[in-house]
């Protein structure tokens, strides 16, 4: 019995230690190393055969110079700031688009609900890459939007939308919209309708009742949705690379290029460590929000 329990715990535990925690420490270690023309392309490497002396030598060669480099070259600084800006603005737009949809779903007749739910989830099962790619054909110079507007005579010169930050916003809103809708819908669905009804009976206007009752009570869902959009959007690589332009700086893209084009693994690792440090705050806030919600339900 005890043996079985130990086995059951150990297998997934060791797997996650080996494939999640250990790689994470390797990234930390390499972020403290220097780039070198060798295989693997960094120094120092730990040589266990040298025993204690090797260990001492190894640790004495580690340094924070990569992190210093990140602060001196303003490319990285600007990339972090612009990722934060893009993720924040995109999250706000997603909320503005997602809330009315979630509200509409929660107000819909009961027999529609499963179908509406399916319609929200279906894009989630469809390839993210393809859904983002679809916008290239729509937003391009000769894409659907421009040709329709020109045909209608609204514009005479094609608008430049693709390869700008606008296209990145559209991509993030589109790609992550289900993540915003679902938690808000879950919160609105649980909301007791008699509360808003009694507020209206007591003389509140419909809009005032919405602000005073529906919005505060749906807050946990809104918070969860915002984090679920903001956190992945911050490290996004596919959307800025396909829809963004050369001026679109996002840290996921910088990390990728540092690694594959420049082959500077130590700097790429340092970029990853800083990105993680930035993400720790929203991740902890998100988990606290989820925990509070769970406790409230019990």
């Amino acid at each position: 019995m005890q043996l079985r329990r130990t086995f059951l715990i150990l297998v997934p535990y060791l797997w996650m230690l080996l494939f999640f925690l250990v790689p994470f420490f390797i990234v930390m270690k390499i972020s403290l190393s220097q780039v070198a023309l060798a295989i693997p392309p960094y120094t120092p490497t730990l040589d266990i055969t040298q025993g204690w002396d090797g260990l001492v030598k190894f640790f004495s060669q580690l340094s924070f110079s990569n992190f210093q480099f990140l602060t001196t070259d303003d490319l990285y600084w600007r990339a972090y700031v612009s990722s934060l800006e893009i993720a924040t603005v995109a999250t706000a737009i997603t909320l503005l688009v997602g809330y009315p949809i979630a509200y509409g779903m929660a107000s819909a007749p009961d027999e529609w609900r499963p179908t509406l739910m399916m319609l929200v989830i279906l894009p989630f099962w469809t390839s993210f890459l393809i859904r983002i790619y679809a916008w290239m054909g729509i937003l391009g110079r000769e894409g659907f939007v421009n040709s329709t507007l020109e045909w209608l005579g609204i514009i005479h010169e094609p608008l430049t939308i693709l390869n700008t930050n606008w296209a990145v916003f559209i991509g993030i809103v589109y790609g992550y919209l289900p993540f915003m809708i679902l938690p808000i819908y879950a919160a609105l669905d649980k909301l007791d309708v008699s509360l808003t009804e009694s507020a209206q009976d007591l003389g509140c206007t419909q809009i005032k009742a919405f602000w005073l009752i529906t919005v505060p009570l749906s807050r946990p869902g809104v918070v969860a949705g915002c984090f679920l959009v903001f956190i992945p959007a911050l490290g996004e690589y596919v959307i800025p690379s396909l829809l963004g332009g050369s001026g679109t700086l996002m840290i996921g893209k910088v990390l990728w290029e540092e690694f594959s084009s420049n082959r500077d693994w130590p700097v790429a690792s340092a970029v990853a460590v800083v990105l993680l440090l930035i993400l720790v705050v929203p991740i902890i806030l998100f988990q606290r929000n989820q925990q509070r919600q769970q406790e409230a339900e019990q």
Binding site: P23, L279, I283, Q287
Partner: peptide
């Protein structure tokens, strides 16, 4: 360790696993 990968950016997961494999 179970919850963290859900919110980890793909670039970090990919980079760290690659460095492990190497």
């Amino acid at each position: 360790m179970i919850y963290a990968p859900l919110v980890m950016p793909d670039v970090i997961t990919g980079l760290s696993l690659l460095l492990l494999f190497i």
